[in-house]
Design a protein around this nucleic acid. Structure first.
Lengths: 143, 143
DNA sequence: CCAGATATGACGATATTCGTACTATTCAAT
DNA sequence: ATTGAATAGTACGAATATCGTCATATCTGG
């Protein structure tokens, strides 16, 4: 397989820089700022895995369990998720979103989706599927 | 202009999730981990703007000047950048990378470039320019 | 029944962000 | 020249975050 040219690498790098930059500066005081990165990932993970425990979360995020524990504690204090006891294993806790947490995740997902929409709208309808196909290939191609 | 479909949005969102995730978990103990995000951006900004001051940096990063000042202080203590006095304005300091800082930025850029290369190699040569063109359009298209 | 694995949290060391307040300069307009 | 406002930078401290170490409760295989 031919190698990417230096010019291609430079252009792609510059584009990603610009992307990260715009994405970060775009939302100066929205939902994004009220939660830190780990907390946002936590809420989304719990939304997708109701009943999971802090240890599952830690594995998923690649952080120590104490960090995950802190995060769930923080979010529970803010009323965004609840820690239920599990019957069958009395060591474990089952994490679930509260109603408020569900609402916040919905907002997060909506904001995220709006970002995706804005990106796709800058492409022609023909390009959109092509772009999605390529980025999917990049992300999920294992080797 | 037709709107992106829900299916397209979902696929793109999932791909970005996967991307962010792989990118973060990929490098458990490389250069990336030894510096925090702001410090990495700072080094790269100073590399591109030698002689700039903390205030320029703060504007660029969208953080308070005290945060930028902390970052430059931290990096200066670690010997990665130096703060020179400027003749012509005795309030200002001119930030420059030290030799060690230059070396570290070179490593960072190389790692970044390697990531870009890996991504492009997963596409066919024909797709590469197409992908770069589309992502460039997404990032730089103003409206 | 017991050794070892597992789930979780308490606590503290260290580090980061950022608001407030301060100093040293420079600039602009009289 | 003078002086009041704007500007560059930083010191300091409060609030907060990560994560290592240690303790506790519980499960599980033999």
């Amino acid at each position: 397989m031919t190698k990417p040219t230096d010019d291609q690498l430079a252009k792609l790098g510059a584009a990603f820089d610009g992307f990260a930059r715009r994405y970060k500066l775009a939302d100066p005081d929205g939902i994004e700022r009220s939660l830190n990165e780990i907390d946002k990932y936590t809420l989304r993970f719990v939304a997708d895995h109701p009943g999971c425990g802090p240890t599952d979360l830690a594995r998923y995020l690649g952080v120590p369990t104490t960090t995950a524990s802190s995060a769930t504690d923080r979010l529970a204090r803010r009323g965004l998720l609840q820690r239920d006891r599990v019957e069958g294993d009395r060591r474990a806790v089952a994490l679930r979103l509260s109603a408020e947490g569900e609402a916040l995740v919905a907002d997060l997902v909506a904001a995220y989706r709006a970002l995706c929409r804005m990106m796709l709208e800058r492409l022609s309808p023909t390009e959109r599927d092509s772009f999605i196909g390529m980025i999917t290939k990049i992300v999920y191609h294992d080797d």
